[in-house]
Amino acid sequence: MIEVVPRLLPGLRITIEVSAISLVLATLIGIWLGVIRAYTKARNPLNWVLDAYVFFVRGTPIIVQIFVLFFLAPELGLRIDPYWVGIIALTFNSAGYQIEIGRAAVGSVGAAQFDASLALGFSRRQTIWLVILPQAVRRMIAPLTNEMSQLIKASSVLSVITVFELHKAANAISSASFKYVELLALQAVFYLVLILSVSRFARWIETSVLGAGEGAADFQVR
């Protein structure tokens, strides 16, 4: 079991890469859309579009979303490497969940802040960027960490579209050696260590850099 560890490391690297790139992209897109969602009026058609997007992301399994993108891209005449199909699929999925994170964090800041800032002569844009978002960021840390672990777990599903991440790399070894259970147990350890260190690191940021924050319990499986 020990001798296969080095052969799993390239897979582990892809897992980390794919999840990290998707997290960064999805955070930028998701939080931005979340802020838009928080500040558009209820009747605005943009809201319906965003709500439909969130409904689609929450209402279908991630494996289906990955399949849709994987099969749809060639139909539309796009030739994308599975690696990037994977990143786009994970970003698409995670951004949908992060719209809610952004919206909730911005909503928690309080309308008085917004009014006060406008009264002091800030524009709406300045208010959002300089007053609301800096306060909202602290409340995003816990859900974003959770999002990182969700992405690491979801990246294992990319094995079905031949992305050579940890699960796929281990599968390749086990289908040659028939040591399925051993390799799965080994992978489980890899994933556990990865996810636990991500959440420890985030808790450290939360408590020592930003001051105490509240942890968020989330019972999502994707």
């Binding site: 672990s149 599903v157 699960h167 399925y180 147990a185 992978q187 994933y191 556990l192």
Partner: peptide, 19 residues
């Protein structure tokens, strides 16, 4: 509990299937 929440569902499913 940590195991079920920290290991990807896909890996757990495969593990049960083979174990």
């Amino acid at each position: 509990v940590e195991f079920t929440r920290g290991v990807p569902p896909l890996v757990q499913i495969a593990l049960i299937y083979f174990a």
